[in-house]
Amino acid sequence: MRSERSLAPYLLFMPTLIYLAVFLVYPLLKALFMVITPEEGTGYTLANIYAVLSDSTFWEALKNTILLAAVIIPLQVFLALMLALFVNTKFRGYMTIVYLITIPLALSDVSAALMSYNIFSPSGYINKILLNLNLIKHPIYFFGFNATTSEFWVIVITEVWRATPLVFIILLAGLQMIGREYFEAADVFGFTKFQKFIYITLPLLKPSLQSALLLRTLFAFQIFGVVWLLAGRDIPILAGETFYQQTELQQYHIAAVYGFVIALISILISWVYLTFLKSAKEV
């Protein structure tokens, strides 16, 4: 590590800082400005914020976003933990399974939604299989304005399929960092498998679990493509409403308020997790 008092590292960082100032900080300030100024005219106003807060769709979108997160995240973490524990037994060919599990990481929410639609659509595979088995006479309609419950669950399944690998990777990396000698010591002292999991794996995996949770929660509040494609505005969500206000209604300043709500929630979540993490470390 070089440490002479040199300008070099600052010069190397300069382009990045300038870029982020122009294309991140400035737009953020601009968004803030949009939130507190009217769509037309001058001066400052709270009208945009008031308009959003008094719109029942906003509250429904907030509710749906939280509901989706509340259902999806525990499922993902549980499945990812099971997967990671299974893979970490390092059976023959386990790397192939790791690659297979991580395939969805490369896929966009758009492809994942279409894959899901392919399975659940009226002429999709589920309906075809059930029809051929004579279990049903007519196709089941999973999608549509009258089917928001099934839409909700299809979205949950799609998100679980698509984003569990993300949690899996973090947990697997965490598991692989736990030294073998801890388990060997536990063997020497006669721990059962369950005791090993409770007293060794879980506590040592805690940092990975926490960062996986933080990331998943952040992403969950930005959920967009899957819901937009599979349910449209049948199930309003925060990002979807941002998009709708912006592109369909061209209410840029209202859209900015929505965007800010997502940003504020993200910052709040990060803050809660980080202080939580810190205090957990200090204990």
Partner: peptide, 10 residues
């Protein structure tokens, strides 16, 4: 921490 949603609009 900042979602892309908030950037796209401005």
């Amino acid at each position: 921490m900042f979602p892309l949603m908030i950037l796209a609009i401005p």
